[in-house]
Design a protein around this nucleic acid. Structure first.
Lengths: 131, 131
DNA sequence: ATAAGGGTTCCAGTGACGGGAAGGTCAAGG
DNA sequence: CCTTGACCTTCCCGTCACTGGAACCCTTAT
């Protein structure tokens, strides 16, 4: 399979697949013409990577997960630890965003949004609290 | 005020303040020695920027907000539109992260996390549904 | 005179790609 | 045989908002 085929099959852009090759996440063989020659195992790995990335795992995490995936002597505890670390990061991001959302929504609610210049949003950013 | 003073006063790293100068968000004067000479208006702007960034506004949004902040003929509607656009982005991110969290948490729950190699997390990523 | 602690510029790197240029390869059609 | 168009290749730059570090200048105190 050429790169276009695996791109279609995996749903990943060809650019991304070349990038994963460049950083050593996959190691496809090469044909006599220099084209990357993907086998089914490569395609499986790419699909795996696509799903791991879609869950927000970093490339570093993906590398570890892929290694565990190929290691028959892994323990599920190792995998679970990576996943839980990532879950914690996700939760932290959600917390941060929710706090932003709360503050921002309050400012937006207080703003008339008309053609006058008075604006609680700008006041809030400038900390010009009119007592 | 030198850059160190405004860094302390605004809470922003000196590096960041130089960066904001470089991209034209602030335009401090210069002393005879070449040092940036910050006035109170510069400090106010930096504090404004710090709070806007803390709410997740992009630098481009910050530039627009700052411009509106300094424009007496602005309308609060203009400000509110920027803020609402950003709120939508935040909501989209929260939605994405929540969906990731949901899927990931289900996998983690299903994983024993012991010393055996069987792992629903890896199975889920590989889409080897054992049904 | 020197040392510490400011300040300055410039360059490189971050994460995970995406855009685009310049050029090689392959299959089909005239 | 030649051309066309769709592939493929590498290489380099750009993204976003900084951060780290090198090399160097300025000020103040000892």
């Amino acid at each position: 399979m050429n790169i276009g085929d695996v791109a279609k099959a995996s749903g990943l852009p060809a650019k991304t697949i070349r990038y994963y090759d460049e950083i050593g996440l996959i190691r496809p063989q090469r044909g006599a013409n220099g084209y990357r020659a993907f086998r089914d195992t490569d395609l499986h790995k790419l699909a795996f990577l696509g799903r791991a990335r879609a869950l927000g795992f970093s490339i570093a995490d993906c590398r570890n997960l892929l290694q565990l995936y190929e290691d028959d002597s892994r323990t599920s505890a190792e995998v679970k630890e990576i996943a839980r670390g990532h879950l914690d990061e996700i939760d932290a991001k959600i917390r941060d965003l929710s706090e932003m959302r709360r503050t921002l929504a309050a400012l937006i609610t207080a703003c008339a949004g008309d053609n006058r210049p008075d604006c609680p949003i700008l006041d809030g950013l400038a900390m010009e609290q009119p007592t």
